[in-house]
Computed example of a mutant assay.
Amino acid sequence: MQWENFLERVQERGEYDTRHEAERAARVVLALLGAHVVGEERVALAASLPETFALILLNPLPAAEPLDPERFVRAAAAWIEGATEATAKWDVGAVLSVVAEAAGEELTRLLLLQLPVGYDLLFGRPQPA
Results as ranks from 00 to 15, higher is better:
residue 3 W to A: 04
residue 36 H to M: 10
residue 42 R to H: 05
residue 34 G to M: 09
residue 78 A to V: 03
residue 43 V to K: 01
residue 112 L to T: 03
residue 37 V to Y: 11
residue 35 A to G: 15
residue 26 A to E: 12
residue 53 F to V: 03
residue 21 E to A: 11
residue 129 A to K: 05
residue 119 Y to V: 06
residue 23 E to I: 11
residue 10 V to F: 04
residue 48 S to D: 13
residue 103 A to D: 12
residue 70 E to P: 00
residue 58 L to Y: 06
residue 124 G to E: 06
residue 99 V to M: 05
residue 43 V to Y: 01
residue 107 L to I: 02
residue 8 E to T: 12
residue 128 P to K: 10
residue 6 F to E: 04
residue 59 N to H: 14
residue 45 L to P: 10
residue 70 E to C: 00
residue 64 A to K: 11
residue 29 V to L: 05
residue 9 R to Q: 15
residue 128 P to Y: 04
residue 66 P to Q: 01
residue 93 G to P: 03
residue 22 A to N: 10
residue 83 A to R: 04
residue 92 V to K: 00
residue 110 L to Y: 03
residue 67 L to S: 05
residue 3 W to K: 09
residue 58 L to C: 08
residue 92 V to I: 04
residue 45 L to S: 11
residue 14 G to F: 00
residue 72 F to I: 02
residue 114 Q to I: 06
residue 89 K to D: 12
residue 121 L to C: 00
residue 77 A to E: 13
residue 80 I to M: 11
residue 54 A to Y: 08
residue 4 E to G: 08
residue 70 E to Y: 11
residue 94 A to Q: 05
residue 29 V to T: 08
residue 107 L to H: 05
residue 25 A to L: 01
residue 27 R to D: 12
residue 1 M to A: 13
residue 13 R to I: 00
residue 50 P to Q: 13
residue 27 R to L: 15
residue 23 E to Q: 15
residue 91 D to W: 02
residue 84 T to H: 09
residue 74 R to M: 09
residue 69 P to M: 08
residue 74 R to C: 01
residue 54 A to F: 14
residue 15 E to K: 14
residue 129 A to G: 02
residue 1 M to D: 07
